[in-house]
Amino acid sequence: MTDLHGQIAIVTGASGGLGTRFAEVLGRHGAAVALAARRLDRLEALEGRLRAEGISCASFAFDAVDPSAPDALVAGVRSKLGAPTILVNNAGISLPGRAHENTLAEFEQTMAVNLRAPWRLSQLCASGWIADKTGGAIVNIASMLSERVGAGVSLYCMSKAALRHMTASHALEWARHGIRVNAICPGYIRTEINDSFWETERGKAELARLPRRRVGAPQDLDSALLFLCDPASSFVNGAAIAVDDAQSWAV
């Protein structure tokens, strides 16, 4: 029943996986959607599909590693679609590697994409909402590994834990301005990036460890996303909602 007509949503990492699904869901519930990612050709294909459904949208080249990219994105969205009212910080990376072997370059890239870009985009949107006295909603895509850890992905765990704490810090500071900041903490979700992994022996072993011996699909996050973007959820602020089929409790 969520009605997002009149809302303008930025979705980073929209060229595939969860980002594509988030853009589709928000658009189908009435929002105009700013599609942001590095792979502009895929964004433009998505834009064409959404426009064919009558959804207002626009594509923006966005490389989260570039420190100037958030400023350019927000300025571009304001110019093409109008002032954003929803921000979905979805773009993220995971660079596997043993903790004692991770390089400085890997650390900096992980933190740039998973933390610095969401921080700057949130700051830019919040500053505009405070100045305009309009309020807005931010949804950060964290992970079940923002609270527990996994071997071989320490950089990812660290960045997502920081993103989760940033969610709470921003919610506390900006609540008085009508700005809500929440996080979704997904479990294992099958996307094009990890699809082949689940057919390997290691992937099958991981599946066997999970409570229902299955992973989720992008659409399993729909209800959480809409709930957090819905203006009716005005008292939900600073939350980190686990959508993981109890995977985070598996030992």
Rank of each mutant, 00 (worst) to 15 (best):
T2S: 07
V11I: 04
V11R: 08
T12V: 00
G13F: 10
G16P: 09
G17N: 06
L18M: 15
G19F: 13
T20A: 14
F22G: 13
A23N: 14
V25K: 04
V33D: 00
A36Q: 02
A37H: 07
R38F: 12
D41R: 05
R42L: 12
L46V: 01
G54F: 13
G54A: 12
A58I: 02
D63C: 02
P70V: 00
G76R: 00
G76P: 00
G76I: 02
V77C: 01
S79M: 05
S79Y: 07
K80S: 10
G82N: 04
I86V: 08
N90W: 06
I93H: 04
R98G: 15
A99K: 03
E101S: 11
T103Y: 04
A105T: 13
E108Y: 05
Q109P: 10
A112K: 13
A117F: 01
W119D: 11
S127W: 02
W129T: 11
W129Q: 01
D132H: 01
D132C: 01
K133R: 07
K133E: 09
G135M: 03
G136K: 09
V139Y: 13
M144R: 09
L145A: 14
E147K: 15
A151Q: 11
C157T: 07
S159Q: 04
A161E: 01
R164D: 14
H165N: 14
T167V: 10
S169I: 10
A171I: 09
G178K: 07
I179F: 08
I179H: 14
I184G: 13
P186S: 15
R190E: 06
T191V: 02
E192W: 08
I193Q: 09
D195T: 12
E199P: 03
E201D: 05
R202L: 15
A205D: 04
A205K: 02
L207K: 08
A208R: 05
R213E: 06
V215C: 03
A217E: 12
P218N: 10
P218S: 12
L225N: 11
F227G: 08
F227L: 10
C229E: 06
S233E: 00
F235T: 10
N237P: 05
N237T: 08
A240I: 11
A240L: 08
V243K: 09
D244H: 11
S248V: 14
